[in-house]
Structure formats: C-alpha cells, structure tokens
Simulated assay, not measured.
Amino acid sequence: MTYEPVYTRTPRNAFVPSPVFVGILAVFVVSGWMTWARFGNVRVDVFLFIVTGWLVSLCLHEYAHALAGFVSGDKTVAERGYLRLNPLKYTNPLLSIVLPVVVVVLGGIGLPGGAVWIDHRYINSKVKDSLISAVGPLTNVVLALLLSVPFLIGFGDVHLALLPTGEVGLSGAHPQFWCALAALAFLQITASVLNFIPVPGLDGGSIIAPWMSPAYQRAWSLFAPYGFILLFLALWQTRLGDWFFQAVYWIGDLLSIDRTLIQIGLELMRFWSGS
C-alpha cells in the first residue's frame, strides 16, 4: 500500500508575525536607538542590540526555509506555525535559540540556530529541495550586505585612541552604535560561511544531499546529528578555525567593515567583563 501525503488546510493567520517576533523586533529597534543615543549603560544597550538582532536574523533564516518549502509544495509548514516567525515553534528551542545566543555571547560566532521541519514527501524536485536549504544562508548573506551598507558608503567613522590605562578610547559620532553594527554584520558573515560548508546537518550539506544516491543519503543522514559538533570542535581545536576566521575577516574587509570595530563591538557586548 502506497502512502499518499494529505495536504492540510492553511490557517488564516499563517503569515501573521507572532507576538514573540514582534517583541524581539521591538527590543532590537529600541536598543538600537539606546545605543545610538548612549542611553543608560551603553554596554547593556549594545548587548541587547546585538543579541536581539541575532535573534531576528535566526527567525528570518528559518522563515526563508519555511517559505521556500511552502512555495515548493509543503503546505504543512503553515499549520506548524513556521511562517509566523515564532522561534518557539522550532523543533528544539533550547538548541535552536538558547545555544546560538550563548555561543554568540561567549564566542562571537554566528552558530547556525533554529530548525524547521520540512516534509520532503511534498517536494517533487531536487532543485527545489536544494533551494529550500540554500535560502536560509542566502538570507544571512543579504543581511550581511544590508548591515554593511553604512560602512560601504562612508558612515561609521569611528576614531580610536590608546588611553593611558591601556584601553582603546572611542570618539566620533555614535561610535558604540557603529561598533555594535559591525559586530552584528560580522555574525551574519560567520553564519553565511558556516551554513554553506557541505557538512551533514548544516544547510550546505542539505543543499547537496538531494543529488546523492539513496544509499549515500541514508549514510549522510546518520552523520547529520554529529556533523556540526565535529565541525565546531575542528574550528576551535585545529588550523581550520584560523582559516575560517581569515576568510570571514577577508569578506568583512571587502565590505569595508573594520576589524577593530568588530572586536570592540563584541567586547562591548560582554558588559559583565568591563566597566
């Protein structure tokens, strides 16, 4: 007996942004203004701005996967709430949201985050299958380009000076904001590069998987839960990490994002480590 997938009815509010996403977006905008105006503790402002900005990008990344799946034939993503930009709807919120935020805060790298489940029985094309996986990291590429626009057109002019205490002093118009924006763009670049690496369990691996034979696909799927763990260990324990960050900073240079601004932005984000 052959199983035939049954399409579900698309909820009327399937494309309405969830209150959770709207709340995250609101905090991102407000913290951006607070960082710009240096309102209150600017290091806390930078922390909120970068973390909520990263959460917004996670939601948009997964929304792109879900929307591509919906257009390609899997209408069940609407029933699961994936088209409402709600990170709590992901398959595992702890691994999808909490872990990437912790890694961003502690390691300054855009760890691939949330996961939406696509029912591939509805997808009748290898090209569509690959595109569903590709649109996520392509979203990070677009975000990285958008965040780099101010630097490309000459904004973000931050003057650095070495203070008698040995710390780096900032001067210019809204220097903390530009450092935070540079760090956020850097995270998008790291996420883009990571997600295009053809490793089982990452989008890069899922892009090429549909073109494998069924036997190779089964073996690929067995390694999927461990692929990123092995890659993560390799990035931190081998020369691969050096090459990875060299590539990321090289891309940042092409986008006119100063490396010093990135480092200062990430340092400001860790408000608990300084005055």
Rank of each mutant, 00 (worst) to 15 (best):
Y3S: 11
Y7P: 08
R9A: 11
T10D: 12
N13Q: 11
I24D: 03
L25K: 01
V30Y: 00
S31W: 06
W33G: 05
T35P: 07
V42G: 13
F49P: 07
F49K: 08
T52Y: 12
T52R: 11
G53P: 10
H61V: 09
Y63R: 10
A66S: 14
A68V: 02
F70I: 12
V71A: 01
V77E: 05
E79V: 15
E79F: 14
Y90R: 06
P93H: 07
L94P: 00
S96V: 11
I97W: 08
I97Q: 11
L99Y: 10
V102C: 10
V103Q: 03
V104H: 05
L106P: 00
L106D: 02
G108H: 02
I109Y: 00
G110V: 15
G110C: 09
I118C: 02
I118L: 11
D129V: 01
S133D: 15
P137G: 02
N140V: 10
V141C: 06
L143N: 04
L145D: 09
L147D: 08
S148K: 10
P150R: 05
L152N: 08
F155S: 13
D157N: 12
L160E: 01
T165K: 04
G169D: 00
L170N: 06
P175E: 05
Q176G: 03
F186M: 13
V193A: 05
L194V: 07
P198Y: 10
G204Q: 02
S206E: 06
A209R: 14
P210W: 04
S213G: 09
Q217C: 05
S221L: 13
F223A: 12
A224Q: 06
A224N: 06
Y226M: 13
I229M: 14
I229Q: 08
L230E: 02
F232W: 03
L233D: 06
F245S: 00
Q246R: 14
Q246Y: 10
G252Q: 00
D258Q: 12
R259I: 03
R259Q: 08
L261G: 00
Q263I: 11
Q263C: 00
I264N: 02
G265H: 03
E267P: 01
L268A: 00
S273M: 14
S273E: 15
G274M: 09
